[in-house]
Design a protein around this nucleic acid. Structure first.
Lengths: 126, 126
DNA sequence: GACAGTTTTGACAACCGTTTTCATTTTCCT
DNA sequence: AGGAAAATGAAAACGGTTGTCAAAACTGTC
């Protein structure tokens, strides 16, 4: 797993928003790349297994991916208009999740947090 | 929209974990209810539109529903073993999300937060 | 109660994103 | 080069969800 996997990774690194598999596939094809949809899916899961990309589900159940700048735990602030995404750290949230879990007797706490909003560019010059 | 919608709502109120549409459909049928899968889906979206149930997506993209006890904003602490769910409030998280958004020039902030863990019953008596 | 009009229902087909299959191609190693 | 193993992609299979459309269940009115 290598050639196409790097290509997919490259696309994601150049994007600053979450992209769907089909979306990536279309872009690659339109640029002339000879790649199959299946391979894009496989590359994405491989990249995700390696922790090189973040995945999340849109409200309609589609999986969207993004190359994460850091391998460490973080969350996303996503513009609902243009899709621009900022990685944010949330030590307070991590602590809160742990505390909430402990309070109810839960162990091995994990959590998912996504923040949405409209960025300055999209809401500003009205 | 009434008969079956109430039936679906009732099932959810009796469950303390998130349920999928198909899951609910199967249960209703096994109890002898004469209802179609389509109707279950319709009832669920209607209930969701009315803010009577919470929806979230599992990692494999399936939509799961739960009757929320309160109409006010809250989050969930879900046992990954038995699915038991506790509603939790997180004023700190709300503030954090607002702050993070503002810091990056985003407005109209919303967020999704789900906490997962293993509950006492499922991890305790080893 | 009968009737016309509206709403709800459900079997079935259509959708759509994702995964599997499997035969072909490419890569890697010696 | 030669052969085994990994990667690829077209097409088919899958699974959850939504659309279609005719039949059934309510509505309110005479």
């Amino acid at each position: 797993m290598s050639r196409s996997r790097d290509a997919v990774h490259e696309i994601l690194r150049r994007s600053e928003s979450f992209r769907s598999a089909q979306d990536i596939f279309t872009e690659m094809r339109s640029v002339g790349a000879k790649i199959g949809l299946t391979t894009v899916y496989r590359a994405l899961q491989a990249l995700n297994d390696d922790g090189r990309v973040d995945v999340l589900r849109t409200d309609d159940g589609e999986a969207v991916y993004r190359a994460c700048a850091s391998g460490v735990h973080h969350h996303h602030l996503v513009c609902r208009a243009c899709g621009r995404t900022v990685e944010v750290a949330g030590p307070d949230v991590e602590r809160w999740a742990e505390a909430i879990g402990a309070e109810h007797g839960f162990v091995e706490i994990t959590h998912t947090v996504e923040v949405f909003g409209t960025c300055a560019d999209c809401s500003g010059p009205r």
